[in-house]
């Protein structure tokens, strides 16, 4: 007697694509930026990174097991690792360990697990954790160490970031001018103070190219954000070149690249179709520039993404993909 056959509805083949494969792809894309941070910040970057990833994994496992009492653990899908890495990327390399752990707890315990874990969180957990820390510990979160102190962690001396300089100029603080800004090339390769992962635009763009090549993300969100920021800041620069920095400097400084490439493109919290993605990217760009130029914080990326995350469901309802046969191409 032959085996009892399996019966199911079609299709009977699968693309072999998996959640894990996508998550691994993102992690690989993050490697160049991490490598740069190791070179630039040394041991500090390593401590922050390890603390963040380990505590994210721990909280996901512990909350799943002891609070939600689910039988299987979800740490295997690598999403908690990505949250940990992205959270670390958004932190200064001299942040005390206990603050990092608090951030991870907020990211996993408040922004992710209560909503049902992977796939259900309304906002990006890593960003939620970061913004929570930024509001709760503004001093620690905005003092970035000077680059090149490979062996120092908590005792590193700190310096102003390019964005802080720009903000200073806008606010009319005496003694700062746009001339103090580093060159675009320095910003591109990443030799300036800043959060761990955001300093090198080159490394982040390398990650973007990898993710596009592996078809993990599409170009719509990053390109629309970057283009919007470029155009908007370009106009502002033309209006008042003394107060507002050049668009290229704006693009390369702060968390814009990191946000546009890795945070805004988070599957769960971004819109589900191309048109929606473009709208989402456009508004993130606008909000970021508005906060940077007119708000009280020097950096607006995190807030912009979080705000647009909240609008994603509405965008999904408003934007529908182009249906087949809706507009006849030729009559």
């Amino acid at each position: 007697m032959e085996n009892k056959l399996f019966v199911s509805l079609s299709p009977h083949v699968h693309s072999e694509d998996t959640v894990k494969r996508n998550m691994h792809g993102v992690l690989i894309a993050l490697i160049p930026a991490f490598f740069v941070s190791l070179v630039v910040f040394g041991i500090g970057a390593l401590i922050v990174m390890v603390t963040s990833v380990v505590s994210c994994l721990f909280f996901e496992w512990a909350i799943g097991k002891y609070i939600m009492k689910s039988k299987t653990t979800t740490i295997g899908d690598c999403s908690a690792i990505i949250t940990g890495v992205l959270l670390a990327f958004n932190l200064p390399s001299n942040l005390p360990i206990w603050i990092i752990i608090l951030g991870a707890l907020f990211a996993i315990g408040v922004a992710k697990m209560p909503f049902g874990g992977l796939g259900c969180n309304p906002v990006n957990p890593a960003l939620a954790g970061r913004v929570f820390l930024l509001i709760s510990f503004p001093v620690q979160m905005t003092s970035w160490p000077v680059v090149g102190q490979i062996t120092s962690y908590a005792d590193a001396t700190t310096a102003a970031t390019p964005l802080a300089i720009m903000k200073g100029v806008i606010n009319g603080t005496s003694g700062v001018s746009l001339n103090q800004l580093p060159s675009a090339w320095n910003l591109f390769i990443g030799t300036n103070a800043g959060s761990i992962g955001e300093i090198s635009a080159a490394a982040l763009l390398l990650g973007l190219i990898f993710m596009l090549w592996k078809k993990i993300i599409t170009w719509h969100i990053p390109v629309s954000i970057l283009a919007t920021v470029f155009v908007f800041t370009g106009i502002m620069h033309l209006v008042n070149p003394v107060e507002y920095a050049r668009p290229l400097i704006q693009l390369l400084s702060g968390g814009l690249m990191l946000g546009a490439i890795f945070m805004a493109t988070d599957y769960v919290t971004s819109p589900m179709n191309k048109k929606g993605m473009l709208i989402y990217g456009f508004f993130i760009g606008v909000l970021t520039v508005v906060i940077r130029l007119f708000g009280s914080y020097p950096e607006g990326m995190s807030f912009a993404i979080l705000i647009m995350n909240c609008f994603t469901p509405l965008i999904n309802i408003y934007c529908k993909p182009k249906r087949f046969g809706e507009v006849a191409k030729k009559k």
């Binding site: 009892k4 056959l5 399996f6 019966v7 199911s8 509805l9």
Partner: peptide, 22 residues
Amino acid sequence: PLVSRNDGTRSCAITSLLYGGE
């Protein structure tokens, strides 16, 4: 006795679309 193994979604409504049952 079973004559086949249903590998589809465990829902009667969907299984009944698929076939007569296991």
